[in-house]
Write a protein that binds this DNA or RNA. Structure first.
Lengths: 346, 346
DNA sequence: CCGATTTAATAAAACGGTGTAGTATCATCC
DNA sequence: GGATGATACTACACCGTTTTATTAAATCGG
């Protein structure tokens, strides 16, 4: 491996000078352009690659961040990762990605691993599962720049970026209302999930302003957060068993909607002819499902790059040991209309 | 930050001794159990975490590997990542994950980034897209332990683990044959994709041994490797337009199968009643598709952990600068029978 | 021409570990 | 009783950078 000394020797200069030139230190402004050019050329010629460990050891900057995702197989996570990747690809930071697999023990463990590796910041992706508050406090206590993505954490001390769920369901309901639906069923998310509440708030808000009547008998709730497909199927069968007519169904998320559609179809109903169905999340499968699902798309990449920006900014401040107050952002989602919704009886 | 010196002072020992104890150096065997215990206790008490950069700098081991995936949003990749994660979570290695986004330029770039970060080994995930051979030679020239996952590379110098595609399609076809299908249509994968050939080889092999007749008019080929859903839809429409009867369809992959099903349904046919459809890959969506798709499941986690083991082994050899010859493994896939296949007219 | 400033560069000390060579003590053995 | 060897440590150099302090020459204003 070629070191900075090799470059220095080749240039007839000291390692100090080479270092200053290559890392654009402030003092390098006194070094003439000609010398700089020579140094850079020689470094390139020798194929010099600075040893990141020596750099990190001396400068105390690891140029590394940690990204924790609850479940890497979740398409929701994948899209966000794409966004994070793109944001960091232009910076000098390289992320360590760890997969929590929805397991609080692993969260603890990998938080320590990442801190042990001296990451300069953390992006923590929260899916709809509720955070254990003690885990967050573990984060707060170490004063490391971090951003929560996808969910508002309970605490005020951390930065976060999340989807505006309320606006999402509001848009969904408005879409159905405009199509002419008045008898609408709802499958709410599990109680323990915060998103469910925000989504329901959006429903109520739209209902209040438009004088749409919500029949409480047509509102059912999922129990298990891990099997929304099965849940959607079961709850829809129960709804059908009630015998109350409804022409549209708002599902907690896309998997629930898929389950619901399956139940409707196996009951001999056609979607959207007999019943419109609307999902939430717009996972990739929504586009090629049968029928293609109308859903609320969260702007994951936007969410992610916003989070990455915030983190980078926080790290920068942290380096100059300035304190920044936490940043909080809500991103409005967008309704994607496909084939699973239509005017009643259409 | 507490350093090894702090621990040493607290113990009344030299940093050398502490280091030997904590990193279980061979010389530590001369140190009495009582001292070791004390060192460990003090280290724990002070919350000592060795600085990984100092360690890496001195010992020349980064305890880091690089993982390159062609497209992180691809569920195929996600499952493999899960397998890799699990294999490495017990070792002291932490992977850097980079997303190539199917872009050869990014491959080049990130290969350099990873090598710059001094990863000790590389796992390169290949999807169905063909590798550019020059990229692989870039790998061979640097002598860094690496494993290709998911595809046989052209070269003999690298280790790889891949799915036995031939066996997969053989199983699929046998399944259809046993159900009684004799008029079977095929949508082959794009010519530029190596998998397509292996898959076709499996088809031919089974046809030869079972005396099944393949009607060349019922064999169509995808052109664009990026839009298999649309491709499946179009090709199936063309097949239907021929007017030749067929009772089953073997698709190149699950997305193609989804497209095909859509075309069949919009032509007024029922799946599987009028036509069985079989996919390949068993992506997650296959299970909850409508109808649930019979598909060939590749054992991703197995593939991944096998690859990880091989890499770890190669790294170990590399450390003791022993040379190991490349390892090559084929993993048999498994047919998952769901609802999209049945006996003709059933 | 003198002191101050700018320019161009360097020597040496970190950063926090690990590896090698060495020391001191004590038991063992012929 | 001196050589041998095991035991229980330590001193010091080193890994490859960056940083701080310092030097030396050139330039400049008065």
């Amino acid at each position: 491996m070629v070191t900075i000394r090799d470059v220095a020797r080749q240039c007839g200069l000291s390692p100090t000078t080479v270092s200053m030139v290559l890392s654009r230190a402030p003092l390098a402004s006194y070094i003439p352009e000609s010398t700089k050019k020579r140094v850079i050329q020689v470094a390139e010629g020798l194929g010099y690659q600075p040893n990141p460990f020596a750099q990190a050891l001396r400068s105390r900057h690891s140029h590394t961040i940690g990204v924790m995702v609850p479940d890497i197989a979740d398409p929701y996570c994948a899209q966000i990762l794409r966004g994070i990747e793109n944001s960091f690809s232009r910076s000098s930071y390289l992320p360590f990605l760890v997969d929590i697999q929805n397991n609080p023990l692993r969260f603890r463990k990998y938080l320590n691993v990442l801190l042990g590796r001296r990451v300069e910041g953390l992006i923590i992706l929260a899916n709809s599962l509720s955070f254990e508050t003690e885990l967050l406090s573990a984060l707060e206590s170490r004063k490391i720049p971090s951003v929560i993505l996808g969910r508002e954490p309970g605490t005020d001390a951390l930065s976060w970026v999340a989807t505006d769920n309320e606006s999402g369901t509001q848009q969904a309901l408005e879409h159905l209302y405009r199509l002419g639906h008045r008898k609408i069923a709802f499958i709410r998310g599990p109680k323990m999930i915060v998103d469910s509440h925000d989504q329901w708030a959006g429903i109520c808000c739209f209902a209040a302003t438009s004088a749409l009547e919500l029949d409480p008998r047509l509102v059912v709730t999922l129990s298990d957060p891990f099997s929304s497909y099965e849940g959607g199927y079961e709850r829809t069968k129960e709804l059908l068993a009630l015998g109350l007519p409804f022409t549209a169904l708002v599902a907690f998320d896309d998997m629930t909607a898929f389950g619901a559609i399956r139940a409707l179809i196996s009951a001999g109903l056609r979607v959207p002819h007999d019943c419109s169905v609307i999902g939430f999340d717009d996972i990739p499968a929504a586009a090629f499902y049968n029928p293609a699902l109308t859903s609320v798309r969260e702007h994951m990449e936007g969410l992610a790059s916003m989070g990455a920006e915030i983190l980078l900014e926080t790290i920068r401040a942290h380096r100059n040991n300035a304190t920044v107050s936490p940043v909080r952002r809500k991103v409005k989602p967008e309704l994607i209309v496909r084939e699973s919704t239509a005017s009643p009886g259409h």
